[in-house]
Amino acid sequence: MTDEAKTIQPQKTQMQDAAATERTKDRRTYIPRVDIYEDDQNNLRILADMPGANEKSVSITLEQDVLTIEASVDNVEFSGHTLSYAEYGVGDYYRAFTLSEKIDREKIEARMKNGVLSILLPKAEPHKTRKIKIQAG
């Protein structure tokens, strides 16, 4: 594999409003780009590029089997300066995934470093098959 990647930092994709719900804040929202892989323990690992977000502004929720990642990002301004050229927009982040595997909720870990969110979703131990005794009479 060469070092020279075709796309180092693909342009952020802006969220299109989902048909069902709309966000209350009138702000641009971007879809963070992610890498997802399964490690040798069958744990799911997610890395999400969210430049501008930090550990305080990110929130992760797991409801049923839907994992939601959100982050708010403050606008950037410099006093006395005007934005004269822009290649990227500043806004919040939002993305949700449906997990097909059962996850051990107690052991989820997440950390934020240099604008990258990493989440470890450990696979839940398979439930032991329980035999149900049937009583006579």
Binding site: Q9, H81, T82, L83
Partner: peptide, 23 residues
Amino acid sequence: ESSPPMNIFTSEEGVVITSEMSG
């Protein structure tokens, strides 16, 4: 396309460049 995107802020005193390059 292969470079991190930049925003450029200018004033008469100088320039501030911000660039998204996470990780």
